[in-house]
Amino acid sequence: MSESTRTVPRQPAPAGELTQADIDRRMAREREAYEKGLAEGAEPSHHPRRDYAPYRSSALRHPTQPPVAVDTRLDPEAAELSSPAFGDTDVTELDSDLTRQHQGEPLGERITVSGRLLDREGRPVRGQLIELWQANASGRYAHQRDQHPAPLDPNFTGVGRVLTGDDGSYAFTTIKPGAYPWRNHANAWRPAHIHFSLFGSAFTQRLVTQMYFPGDPLFAYDPILQSVTDEAARARLVAAYDHDLSRPERSLGYRWDIVLDGPAATWIEEGR
């Protein structure tokens, strides 16, 4: 990044650009419509709406036809009832410690994130791949297209992988990512988050999501988090600080359990 780019002052919002107040009003309308539906007996929505207008990039990227239902109980040969497998060759030991992937220590607050990967019945998902990626402590991704004028960290890439244990457990060591601006509207900021990609025992259970940190003041302003209109569902995206997981003189501990949606063929008691 050139010196000139770094010193450009923030531009005022161009005429016609949406403000945070505009987005807040739209998010409030969506929330009210959702809560009205609940009051009238609708089932809670666990997942975000695909046509969530306050997140402007969704406008042309959501289907308008309803999805076609596939009842897998009637279709045991559906390929989606099984999942790609990953093994020891797909992950190295260093992949789960994002603070040890370079010569030096990354800047920022060292943390661990750990928990369990479960299915809807609470059963562990064993030996499956979890991938994560995140911005550095300054809120900058090691991605060519991220032009946020915050420093890159030569000691932090922000990519990790791990296979879950027999009890579905996983653990990463990393640094706490920073919040960062984006261009959904004027003065739009993403709360600090870590992206997660998860495989289950069936391809139907595939999940990509984001984990947040407790107490972030940006939650209410963020149309990506608020695209999950159900309050209890949003809370499931927020990790818990767990002092018992903090390591003395070393790192702060967060706990986050992940529950995969979607049907699977069978559950194999003794693992794969």
Binding site: H47, P48, H143, H195, Q210, L237
Partner: peptide, 22 residues
């Protein structure tokens, strides 16, 4: 005696910056 169903973790967009990770 069946286990209580666990509420699923919501999905989120993959965002613009997965390209150096996935």
């Amino acid at each position: 005696h069946a286990p209580v169903p666990h509420a699923p973790t919501p999905s989120h967009t993959i965002g613009p910056f997965y390209g150096y990770a996935l």
